[in-house]
Structure formats: structure tokens, C-alpha cells
Design a binder for these strands. Structure first.
Length: 258
DNA sequence: ATGGTGGCACCGCCA
């Protein structure tokens, strides 16, 4: 079972990347963040033609999440109950035995902003949600754009970037607190202590991708039961068919699970 | 270089 995650920065603008990637890689599941499309305008036909079922939750202009799957999807929940602002950042679905929590965690804007406080709260709400509704012995996968670089090897310039909303002590603590529930960083399991593995390159910075000035902000966080079945995990930097400067890329894992 | 550009929907906001 191949499961992937991708921040699209507008799904409709990135169909020319997503559709060929689906065709070439045939994942069982692709979780997408920042679809940036209202549900009424979701590109259902294109996804259907690619051979995928899809559940989604979007809103105008910002955020938006979707889960594409070859197999039927059940147990769908389209908002994090504790988050009363309802910003289309959370989508839960079950595919086969695996519960998938697809999230677009708030970026946070600035550490002294209300949005940063919202970001920290968001992690707390997620921890509360899984505490109440799941157990660590289930095959569960929390994935998506988590907007946190976990450690100094997850950013290209840790000295300069320390204090950024995606790389500072409060967000690292907030993320680890969710992981403490019983989740493991699947990619890091395969490449412990190796720097220079990134999933995001800021397209506003000149040559960020070419010089690998990136961040690791996207994750597959699995319970032990699921992580133990993971045979490989990789960041797919191949789909450079972007007609615009790149942003996030695909993070993929293969699980040996029915 | 503490900037930059792209996306969406509106006359700016967010990343």
C-alpha cells in the first residue's frame, strides 16, 4: 500500500503535476493540502478520470484538504471538532484498515501574532482529538504539511532560521507533544541523522531548489503498528514538471499492509 | 539580500 502526501498550492493550478504523478506512481492514497478550491468547484472529473475516488473539504481562497484513494473511503470527518473556526485544514478518512488524518497545520504568520497562538492551539486540539477518538495500537497515519521543522537537520540554515514560526521551540514542542501520543516520523526512521532531506523550497528565494535551501515540513507520522510495516519512504523530487517555481514536493511511503 | 513571487479573489491576504 503506497501512501503519499503533497501540498498543491492550488489543486486546479497543479493538475498538470498531480495527474501525471498519479499515472506514473499509482499510489493507493494521495493526501493533498492547500487545494485552494471551494467544494462546488472541486475538479472531480479529472480525479475520477485518473481512476481515484476522492473526499475533500475546501473553502474560498485558502487552505483546503483532499484524500484521493483507489479503494473506497469510510469514516470521513471533515473538521477538527475543537477548532471552531472551521478553516478546512483537517480531513480524516479510513482506507482499508488505515485511518488517515490529513492536515494542513496553520503556518502561524509571526510568532507574536494571533495566528501563531492559533497554530499552537491547533496542535493541542489535534492531540485532544486523537486522545479521545483513537488508540496508539490502531494502524493510524497522521500526514500532511505540518509546518514545523523538527530539528536542526530539517532546515538548511538552522542558525539563521531559528525563531521562524516553522522552526522555533514552541512549535517543536507542540509537534512532539502530539507525537508523544504514539506516532513516529516514518521518513526519519529510514534516514536518522541525515541532513539535506527537504520537502519544501520557498519559491520566493532565488535558486532555493537548485541549491537545496529547503525545509522538511511535510511528514508521515505513523503509529508503531503501521510504521513496522513500512518498507520504504522517500521524497520524490522527480516531478519537476512545474510550470511555476516549485514549492512542496511529494513524500511517499510503501506499507506492507492488506 | 530579513527580500522575493504565485495563487486566489477582490481592490489585499496568505504563504
Amino acid at each position: 500500500m503506497i501512501i503519499a502526501t503533497f501540498n498543491a498550492n492550488s489543486l486546479r493550478s497543479r493538475l498538470d503535476v498531480v495527474l501525471p504523478w498519479l499515472e506514473a506512481n499509482q499510489p493507493d492514497v494521495l493526501a493533498i493540502q492547500e487545494t485552494k478550491v471551494q467544494d462546488v468547484d472541486f475538479p472531480l472529473d479529472a480525479i475520477d478520470d485518473a481512476g481515484y475516488r476522492v473526499v475533500f473539504r475546501g473553502q474560498k481562497k485558502y487552505n483546503g484538504v483532499a484524500i484521493l484513494s483507489k479503494e473506497p473511503v469510510t469514516n470521513v470527518l471533515a473538521h477538527l471538532p475543537q477548532d471552531t473556526t472551521d478553516q478546512a485544514r483537517f480531513l480524516k478518512a479510513k482506507v482499508g484498515p488505515v485511518t488517515i488524518l490529513n492536515t494542513y497545520v496553520p503556518q502561524g504568520m509571526a510568532v507574536d501574532s494571533d495566528k501563531f497562538e492559533y497554530k499552537l492551539n491547533w496542535f493541542r486540539w489535534l492531540r485532544e482529538y486523537i486522545d479521545k477518538n483513537h488508540t496508539p495500537d490502531e494502524p493510524l497515519l497522521w500526514l500532511g504539511d505540518l509546518n514545523v521543522a523538527r530539528t536542526e537537520i530539517d532546515v538548511h540554515d538552522p542558525k539563521r532560521l531559528w525563531g521562524h514560526v516553522c522552526y522555533c521551540q514552541p512549535v517543536q514542542d507542540a509537534l512532539e507533544n502530539v507525537m508523544d501520543w504514539g506516532l513516529t516520523d516514518v521518513f526519519r526512521n529510514f534516514y536518522p541523522d541525515e541532513p539535506d532531506h527537504y520537502t519544501f523550497w520557498d519559491y520566493r528565494a532565488i535558486n532555493a531548489l537548485a541549491q537545496n535551501r529547503g525545509w522538511r515540513l511535510d511528514y508521515l507520522m505513523a503509529t508503531a503498528k503501521l510504521a513496522d510495516t513500512c518498507k520504504r519512504c522517500w521524497i520524490d523530487k522527480e516531478p519537476r514538471g512545474w510550470n511555476k517555481p516549485s514549492d512542496h514536493t511529494f513524500l511517499v511511503a510503501e506499507f506492507e499492509i492488506a
